[in-house]
């Protein structure tokens, strides 16, 4: 099976400081890849390379077999890569409804998007006209998810989905991630808190100091985790 998105020997960094060293990984349709590791390991940087926000210094970003290394994020987004960035996946000053409309692709009627969204998260329907910034943290993340899914993406990149949320809500969100994956979407989850992510992942990788040090089935990764986090 060809991967939907593949990183091939990526080196990347900010200004003078190199962060990623020879990172290669592949995302397959319908599969969830959990990228784990302690703070500052390069997880979010990897995700930024996938979404096009950061151009690697060397290496290739391959999407559906085509190299798209230097494509800008908006073009990648239109090609079907959807990103929920860390902690700020919504437009706080727009209403819930505006947030949903914002990303509707032309062709899909907005009513349909709203309908699907409210079915998925019933809480949101009563808040359609509320400003998104006034929602609770969990609701904001739900909105971000809904908004992302409204674009009907082929690849979904999630950065620290669980950050600052109650475990119950995290569970709920991950359930939806699983549902989405079963619809054939390739998913990359970047997480610092490994356990829940490992439960739903098909493949997992551990990043340490900008290198992918371990990759494999979640069960086998679980054993190496303690070592990775505690050194």
């Amino acid at each position: 099976m060809t991967p939907l998105l593949a990183l091939h020997k990526i080196n990347a960094g900010y200004a003078e400081i190199p962060v990623l060293h020879d990172v290669s990984l592949s995302l397959y349709p319908g599969k969830i890849y959990a990228l784990l590791g302690p703070n500052g390991g390069g997880k979010s940087t990897t995700l930024k390379v996938c979404s096009g926000q950061l151009t690697p210094t060397s290496g290739d970003l391959i999407i559906a077999g085509k190299s798209m290394t230097k494509t800008d994020p908006s073009a990648l987004a239109r090609a079907g890569i959807c990103t929920i960035p860390e902690g700020k996946g919504i437009f706080p000053n727009l209403t819930v409804r505006d947030n949903l409309i914002m990303m509707s692709k032309s062709g899909i009627p907005t009513e349909h998007i709203e309908e699907v969204a409210y079915q998925r998260f019933t809480q949101l329907s009563s808040r359609a006209r509320q400003t998104a910034g006034t929602l609770s943290g969990g609701e904001q993340q739900m909105l971000a998810m809904t908004r992302a899914l409204a674009t009907d993406p082929a690849i979904l990149l999630l950065d620290e989905l669980s950050m600052g949320l109650a475990p119950l809500i995290v569970g709920q969100l991950y359930e939806i991630v699983q549902q989405v994956a079963s619809g054939g979407v390739a998913i990359l989850i970047v997480e610092q808190f490994a356990r829940t992510a490992l439960e739903i992942a098909d493949t997992a990788g551990i990043m340490l100091n900008g290198r992918l040090v371990n990759e494999g089935r979640p069960e086998s990764i679980q054993k190496g985790l303690k070592h990775a986090y505690l050194g």
């Binding site: 926000q53 994020p73 960035p85 919504i90 437009f91 706080p92 727009l94 409309i101 914002m102 990303m103």
Partner: peptide
Amino acid sequence: GVTMRAVVDNPELVELNGGR
């Protein structure tokens, strides 16, 4: 119009969603 207003909030996110 909604995109215009969204740009003020978070231009990066607009870009991540395929807007310019």
